[in-house]
Amino acid sequence: MADLRPDRLTALRAHLAEVDAVLITAPYQLRAFCGAEVSAGTLALTPQGSFLLLDPRYHDAVTAPAQVDIKPYANGPQRLQTLRWVLGGARRIGVYAQALTLAEMDALSPGDELCFVPIDGVLDRLTSLLTHSEIASLQRAETVTRRALEAAFAALRAGVSEREIRQVLLGVIERDSEGPAFAPIVAFGVRTALPHAHPSVATLQPGDLVTMDAGAVVDGLHADLTETRIFGAAPGQDPQAQALLSVVRCALDAARRATRAGATAEEIDESARAPIREAGFDKQTLRGIGHALGYQTHQPPILREHAQDRVQVGQVLALEPGVYLPGVGGVRLEEMVVVGETSAMPIAEWQSAAHPSSAARGAQ
């Protein structure tokens, strides 16, 4: 994937007209912008060049794009010294405010000589626009996740605990990917009404709703899928659960139909909310039905009420409407779709050869 990362760096460098330099410190952004799979580091962009400051223990494990100069440092004081040298006379520094700590700002600018300018929107937009190879990696992550979900549903039996099923999910994900994108959710029965239930010792009974939410990571890209099914009930045996599944399926289908380049996050959210509202469950759903995916599980745009961000070609969205009835149970269904000019395609059906690269074009 490194062959396409310079496009993202080039697009980011265009914003140096607004600031003197840019500092990137979030590990997932380091991977997105220069392929550095590290837990700590700093990418500095200045008019003079692009510099990646790394602990020397990472040096041999990182292959950065040719335009990025790697600067190893031996310790914390040397890192600050190198970073100040790289920044030179820069005063207005573009940063990701959610990642740069107050302690880091104080260390870089003890006399308040630097002005840190949040450019979160720019960085979020650039990391949400994925290249061909990144979407292909995310597609593989989705495949692993779906395989893990199917293995977990196949392992269901009366008396099994949520924690035991979590281990089945994690076993497949750990074996076939870089690891889990987040802690999996497994919920049985009335606990499915908890949107983010932590797996417990609760055991499965015939007729229970079962919700599982999991994601695998491939090449740094995070998948996210949710499935809800009824365990051990004959068709028509639980009409309330069947009705909930039908409503949420309608909401998911409506959200997919509404997803296309230029659609606002609010429009997609409302498309899913309409059938839920019509069924009388508007107060039993979350105020948001999805988000973009990439080097983090939850990336802007967030699909929720009043959000005016427009989705773009090159983004992959997780659409996840749900209905949650306390004391009864809940249903959430989630799928990953690739945004196209006039429609959205389930990522499982996406073919990279049919889609142009989007990171550089969409970042302008």
Rank of each mutant, 00 (worst) to 15 (best):
A2H: 15
A2Y: 12
L4A: 15
D7W: 02
R8N: 01
A11E: 00
L23D: 05
L23Y: 06
T25H: 10
P27R: 13
L30G: 00
F33N: 06
C34N: 08
T42F: 06
A44P: 04
A44G: 04
L45W: 03
P56R: 14
R57I: 11
D60L: 11
D60F: 12
I70M: 15
P72I: 01
P72T: 13
P72G: 09
N75K: 10
Q78D: 15
Q81M: 12
V86K: 03
G88R: 12
G89W: 05
R91Q: 11
R92Q: 08
G94I: 01
V95D: 07
Q98P: 13
T101V: 09
L102S: 12
E104N: 12
G111D: 07
C115K: 15
F116P: 06
V117M: 13
V117S: 09
P118M: 00
I119L: 14
D124W: 09
D124T: 02
D124Q: 13
E134P: 04
A136N: 08
L138H: 03
Q139R: 10
Q139N: 12
A148F: 03
A151V: 06
F153P: 01
A154Y: 11
R157F: 08
A158K: 13
G159C: 09
E162W: 09
R163E: 13
R163W: 10
Q167E: 15
L169F: 06
V172F: 04
D176Q: 11
G179D: 07
F182E: 11
V186S: 08
A187I: 08
A193M: 03
L194M: 15
H198I: 15
S200F: 08
T203L: 08
T203A: 09
Q205R: 14
D208V: 02
L209W: 02
L209G: 02
A214P: 04
A214E: 05
A216E: 05
G220T: 03
D224H: 14
A233N: 05
G236E: 13
D238A: 14
Q242S: 15
V247T: 08
V248A: 00
R249Y: 08
C250I: 10
A254N: 01
A258Y: 03
R260K: 12
A261V: 02
A265N: 09
I268R: 04
E270I: 12
A272N: 01
P275H: 01
I276C: 00
E278V: 09
G280I: 03
F281P: 00
Q284V: 04
G290E: 01
L293C: 06
Q299E: 08
P301C: 06
P301E: 07
Q308R: 08
P321Y: 06
P321I: 03
G322F: 04
Y324D: 04
L325H: 10
P326Q: 00
V328G: 07
G330P: 05
V331Y: 01
L333D: 05
T342H: 15
T342M: 12
Q351M: 10
A353M: 13
A353I: 14
H355S: 13
A359T: 14
A359W: 06
A360P: 06
R361A: 12
